[in-house]
Amino acid sequence: MTRRQEILACAKTLFREHGYKSVSMRDMAQQMNLKAASLYNHIASKEEILAEITLNLAHKFTDEMSMVKKIQADSITKLEAVINHHVDITLKDPEAIAIVNNDWVHLKGANFDEFIKLRDGYEQDLRAIISAGVKSGELKAKSEEVILFAMLSTLRTLHSWYRKRSGIEGQQLKNDITEILLKGVTK
Rank of each mutant, 00 (worst) to 15 (best):
Q172G: 09
A9P: 04
N33T: 05
R4N: 09
G19N: 03
D103W: 01
M65T: 02
M1F: 05
A96P: 01
S153T: 13
K70T: 13
N33W: 09
C10K: 05
M67C: 11
R119N: 14
T90E: 09
G121V: 01
V185N: 10
A44Q: 12
E47D: 15
K117M: 12
V82I: 10
A150T: 15
D103H: 00
M25K: 03
V134G: 05
K78R: 10
L139P: 00
R127H: 15
T157N: 12
E145D: 14
G133S: 05
K187Q: 11
L39G: 05
I7C: 02
G137S: 06
E144N: 11
Y162W: 11
I49A: 06
A132I: 11
K174Q: 05
R163K: 14
D120F: 03
F112D: 14
R156Q: 13
I76W: 04
I83W: 04
T186D: 10
A29I: 04
L181Q: 03
F15D: 06
S75C: 08
K174Y: 00
D93M: 07
R156K: 12
W104Q: 14
K60W: 08
W161I: 14
D113Y: 02
L107H: 00
M67T: 15
K164R: 12
A11R: 02
I71L: 15
K60L: 11
I130N: 00
V23N: 04
I7E: 04
W161K: 09
V82L: 03
S38W: 07
K70F: 03
K12N: 07
G167F: 03
I116Y: 02
T77E: 13
M25W: 03
Y20L: 02
D176E: 11
K69F: 08
V87E: 01
M32V: 04
I49R: 02
V68S: 01
T157G: 10
H18R: 15
I7Y: 01
F112H: 13
G167Q: 00
H86D: 10
L118I: 04
K21V: 13
